[in-house]
């Protein structure tokens, strides 16, 4: 089933993210690269979204804009009720600190910190905003099945374990939005499934909105909706009637 590509510009509290007429253009020497064009999107709280598209289609750019890592060339982006398109660096930093949890393809853990400390670091950042963390790192790592690996450094963990630490780090501050850029892209099949399962559990148990970027259709099938991107445009938004449980995914 297909939803209309362009939706009404409504910003309700049910929407965690709303994008209106968003463009992103890069200047490469004398050439202008249109990474995203005319993107209009609404993402509801608690949804599990997959952004699907071939390499270079603009899916990571879209994720970066949602996460406040990059700013749009045109258009507006509202995250959790705040229009972030005009945010300065400091405001974007605070947005990322408070509302966004990131999971990267290459895990991006801090190599000098143990698994527990990597999670604690996110909590420490949150605490700087005057918010007392509700959870502790050990509990979070227990949630992702790494109770026994608290004091291990990243290089002592497998890829899957590292990515699960990254998931624990992302959810530590109870973000409004978890963004995963190819979270299984650097993992083998078994580990990949484990990470997807963890993400799905967080999504279901905590009600946290998750958006993952993938170029893998079977993985996208675990989402509630799939946003198809082609040549920088939202080509299609597909609602998945029966999302596939992560353990049943195969690719």
């Amino acid at each position: 089933m297909k939803a209309p590509v362009t939706q009404q510009a409504t910003t309700t509290t049910d929407n965690i993210a709303v994008l209106r007429d968003v463009y992103k253009t890069y200047q490469m020497g004398e050439v202008e690269i249109h990474a995203l064009r005319e993107v209009d999107l609404e993402i509801r709280r608690g949804e599990f979204i997959a952004i699907l598209g071939p390499s270079g289609s603009g899916k990571t750019t879209l994720l970066n804009l949602l996460g406040g890592i990059d700013t749009p060339s045109r258009g507006s982006i509202v995250i959790d009720g705040q229009d972030i398109s005009g945010f300065n660096r400091k405001q974007l930093t605070i947005l990322r600190r408070e509302k966004i949890g990131f999971i990267f393809q290459f895990f991006n853990l801090i190599p000098t910190l143990t698994a527990k400390e990597n999670v604690e670091y996110a909590l420490e950042l949150e605490a700087r905003q005057g918010v007392k963390p509700k959870r502790d790192a050990a509990t979070l790592l227990d949630m992702v099945g790494l109770k026994e690996r608290l004091d291990h450094f990243p290089f002592q963990l497998s890829g899957g374990e590292q990515q699960r630490v990254a998931v624990a780090r992302a959810i530590a501050k109870e973000p409004a939005l978890i963004l995963g850029d190819e979270p299984t892209g650097n993992l083998d099949f078994r580990m990949g499934k484990l990470v997807l399962k963890t993400l799905k559990e967080v999504n279901v148990a905590e009600g946290t909105t998750c958006i993952i970027v993938t170029h893998n259709m079977p993985i996208a099938q675990i989402a509630d909706r799939i946003i198809h991107i082609r040549d920088g445009e939202v080509a299609e938004i597909e609602t998945v009637e029966n999302p596939v449980p992560p353990e049943d995914v195969s690719w």
Binding site: G67, I69, R89, K90, T93, I94, R96, R97, E98, I100, F102, F104, N108, I110, P111, Y121, A122, L125, E126, R128, R169
Partner: peptide, 14 residues
């Protein structure tokens, strides 16, 4: 660079 960028991405300030 990557490590610092990661820290900034997850909310570390300058």
């Amino acid at each position: 660079t990557r490590e610092i960028a990661t820290m900034m991405t997850i909310g570390e300030d300058r």
